[in-house]
C-alpha cells in the first residue's frame, strides 16, 4: 500500500516537486543518508521520462508517483503513454553518445536510462496492470 501518492500534470516544472517529495519520504522511511542523492536522481529521471512520453504522445493525464515504505522503500512512477514507446530502453556507449547523427531526444533517453539502471539496483520497467502505460518501479533498502 502506498504511504504517499503524488499525481502531477505532465509538465517539466513539476518534476522537481516529485524529487523533493520522493527524497523527503525516503528519509522518513529510513533510507540511508548516502543513498538519498541517488534516490533523488532516479525519481527525477523516471518522472522526466514519464513527462517526456506524455508530451510526445499528447497525453494530458497526470503522471502518478507512489511511494511506500513497507519493508523497503518502493517508488512507482506510472505514465499513461502507449506501451511500445516506453519499454524499449537501452543505454548507449561512448561512441554512440558522441555520434553526430544521434538526436538530442535519443541521447537524453539513453542517458536517462543509463542513470536509472546505474543508480537503482532493484529496477523494473513493465506495462501497467490496467489500461495503457508503463510503470517504473524502484526499490531501496531501509534501515541500518
Amino acid at each position: 500500500m502506498a504511504t504517499v501518492r503524488l499525481s502531477f500534470s505532465p509538465a517539466p516544472v513539476h518534476v522537481r516537486t516529485a524529487r523533493l517529495v520522493g527524497v523527503a519520504v525516503a528519509r522518513r522511511a529510513g533510507v540511508r543518508e548516502d543513498l538519498l542523492d541517488e534516490v533523488r536522481l532516479a525519481i527525477g529521471e523516471a518522472c522526466t521520462r514519464a513527462v517526456a512520453l506524455h508530451r510526445q504522445y499528447g497525453v494530458p493525464d497526470p503522471v502518478l508517483v507512489e511511494m511506500s515504505d513497507s519493508g523497503a522503500y518502493a517508488v512507482r512512477v506510472i505514465d499513461r503513454a502507449p506501451i511500445e514507446a516506453g519499454i524499449g530502453l537501452a543505454a548507449l556507449d561512448a561512441d554512440q553518445l558522441a555520434n553526430e547523427s544521434l538526436t538530442d531526444e535519443a541521447l537524453t533517453t539513453g542517458v536517462g536510462f543509463a542513470l536509472l539502471a546505474g543508480f537503482v539496483e532493484d529496477l523494473q520497467v513493465r506495462p501497467v496492470e490496467d489500461g495503457v502505460g508503463t510503470e517504473v518501479r524502484m526499490v531501496w533498502p531501509v534501515g541500518r
Partner: peptide
C-alpha cells in the same frame, strides 16, 4: 547541485556543435 539526463544532453549538444 543537481544534474540530470536533460542537462547532460544539452552539454553533449554544445560539445558536438563546437567540435563541428
Amino acid at each position: 547541485d543537481f544534474l540530470d539526463s536533460t542537462g547532460l544532453g544539452v552539454l553533449v549538444g554544445a560539445l558536438k556543435r563546437l567540435r563541428s
